[in-house]
């Protein structure tokens, strides 16, 4: 039987974690559970209809044309994730390395690279939409100015370039974030370790590959998982730059836009379907949860091996 002292200790612990538990339950667990419950009903606008088991999931995943749209949006999320890993995070790693070497004015670069990160996505989206405007945008005016008229495309209106343009804007916005994390990781490496390595080899590339890269592995894990979650929850930037429909004709559609359109309707075209929307939300959430957890475990193991 626990002593009185022990009991009062337990009571204190319960008392102290209670606020956090209440907040977690009411703002995280209950919404997730209710989204799951909503997805099992037929909805009439916002009025709940009959319990229909997994019919909403069946519709979203297997019925034409919704299955095509789901796959299309999912594919774009995957592309966005891979492209951001390469464009945003590799650039971030290289920038971090350059700043780490402390060239002349590195303090300025450190601030300059991070500056766009603090801008709101709304502002960044709007700015790049203006820059890429086919008639008034500076990008095309520049291309025309230097005689590259053939390259002056309607970037956001062309299905071949629209998604790329969005990824580029996103990378411009957030490249400072992986840079900062890698930089912090590199600065944590003991100096003498790097200097010892430099004595052994004259190849800077080998130092980078065999010493720095393995020692910033925890940074890579964090960046990988955050990029993954960010890429699959991508909404603001495509919403501002491409609109709710993922214009042109779905070439920039991602799961976030598709979910919003389905659940809340699109004033100029769609119908509200809360059940299908919730089903989509549950699918997106489960996918992110499982994939992010698996990867985190895998990458943590890799950190130790490296």
């Amino acid at each position: 039987m626990p002593s009185r002292h022990r009991l009062s200790h337990m009571a204190w612990i319960l008392f102290l974690i209670a606020p956090a538990v209440v907040v977690m339950v009411s703002f995280v667990l209950i919404p997730i559970a209710s989204a799951l419950a909503y997805s099992l009903y037929d909805w009439n606008g916002l009025a709940r209809g009959e319990f229909i088991w997994f019919a909403n999931f069946q519709k979203v995943l297997f019925q034409e044309p919704f299955n095509r749209w789901t796959l299309n949006a999912f594919t774009h999320n995957v592309i966005v994730f891979c492209a951001l890993m390469v464009v945003q995070n590799v650039t971030g790693f290289l920038l971090a390395y350059l700043i780490f070497k402390e060239p002349f004015g590195y303090r300025f670069y450190r601030t300059a690279v991070f500056l766009p990160v603090i801008l709101s996505t709304v502002i960044v989206g709007f700015l790049w939409k203006l820059f890429l405007h086919p008639l008034f945008g500076i990008v095309n005016q520049f291309l025309n100015g230097v005689g590259l008229d053939a390259l002056a495309l309607p970037w956001l209106g062309d299905s071949r370039t629209a998604l790329g343009a969005l990824i580029f804007a996103n990378a411009w916005h957030f490249v400072g974030f992986p840079t900062l994390i890698y930089l912090a990781g590199m600065q944590r490496i003991p100096r003498d370790l790097i200097e010892a390595a430099r004595l052994d080899t004259s190849s800077e590339l080998k130092v980078l590959r065999n010493v720095i890269w393995p020692l910033v592995a925890p940074a890579t894990t964090i960046i990988f998982v955050l990029t993954f979650i960010g890429a699959f929850n991508w909404f603001e930037l495509p919403f501002i730059m491409a609109g709710l429909d993922g214009s042109p004709f779905g070439s920039t559609d991602v799961l976030g836009l598709y979910f919003y359109r389905t659940a809340f309707g699109n004033q100029s075209a769609g119908v509200q379907d809360f059940g299908m929307g919730s089903a989509l939300a549950v699918i997106i959430f489960s996918f992110i949860l499982v994939a992010a957890a698996t990867w985190t475990i895998y990458l943590r193991r890799r950190e130790i091996e490296l």
Binding site: P65, F66, G157, D158, S159, D245, S247, P248, F249, G250, T262, N266, S268, A269, G270, V271, D273, M276
Partner: peptide
Amino acid sequence: FRYEEPSGSVLLQQTVQRMMAGQ
């Protein structure tokens, strides 16, 4: 045709957008 999903408007808007782009 704007009563049920997929609404005629959603379908028409997407496909005509593609048609106007020559695709």
